[in-house]
Every structure is written in C-alpha cells, then in structure tokens.
C-alpha cells in the first residue's frame, strides 16, 4: 500500500547509517571526532549483519568495535602527547629554547606573537 515504507527496513537504515558515518569520518578534521564517526560506521555494518541474520558475526563485530575504538583512542592520546612535547621539531628552535631556558609553551606563545 505504501511502497515507500517498505524501503525503510534494517538494511537501508544501516546503509544510511554507514554512509553518514563514512561522510563524517572523511569530513571531520580532528582524529577524536573521526573515532566517534567510526563508531557510527561500524554500527551500520553491525546493523547490516543483523539484517542478514548472522547474529554470531554481529556479536564478533560488536566486540571488535569497541576494541578498535580503544586502540585508536590510546594511539591518538599518545600521539597528541608526543606532539605537545615538541611543538616545533626544528633543531634551531630547540637550540634557542636551550639558550633562554624557556618552556616550550612559553616559547610557542613567543612565536605566536
């Protein structure tokens, strides 16, 4: 009667979810935001697997989803840490820093000004 409503089932909704997630991953700049959109993308995948009625596969997928999120989170945190430690990797500035004994933060302020 309403053929349009037939199109809205688990498969199409998950497909939409996955596409939105993919678009989000591509568009957003910050890695942390990307990780959130990745969760959306993987939710789409799990939805599709459920639509295919393979519940055990969906279960495995559901377990690995948080794992990859956590892995990414740890790595991003760590990389941010490292990058904060050396704001400017060029040797010259390190040299200057050494001479004036200033902290990296103060020095970056100086550069900004």
């Amino acid at each position: 009667m309403y053929p349009f409503w037939d199109l809205i089932n688990l498969s199409t909704v998950s497909a939409g979810l996955a596409l939105i997630g993919a678009a989000g991953i591509i568009m957003l700049k910050k890695p942390i935001d990307k990780v959130i959109m990745l969760a959306l993308l993987e939710a789409g995948l799990i939805g599709m697997i459920v639509a295919a009625k393979y519940l055990d596969v969906a279960m495995a997928g559901a377990i690995f989803d948080p794992i990859s999120t956590i892995i990414l989170l740890i790595a991003i945190t760590k990389i941010n840490d490292i990058r904060e430690k050396k704001p400017n990797p060029r040797g010259k500035i390190h040299c200057l820093m050494f001479m004036y004994g200033s902290t990296p933060d103060a020095y970056s302020l100086l550069l900004g000004a």
Partner: peptide
C-alpha cells in the same frame, strides 16, 4: 618511551 598520563575508566574494566 613517552608515558601516557590519562586515566580512562574503560581501560581499567574493559
């Protein structure tokens, strides 16, 4: 190695 200093709850339990 640069140590990580953050404390996520999820890393304790998950």
């Amino acid at each position: 190695p640069t140590p990580l200093h953050y404390n996520l709850e999820i890393l304790q339990t998950a």
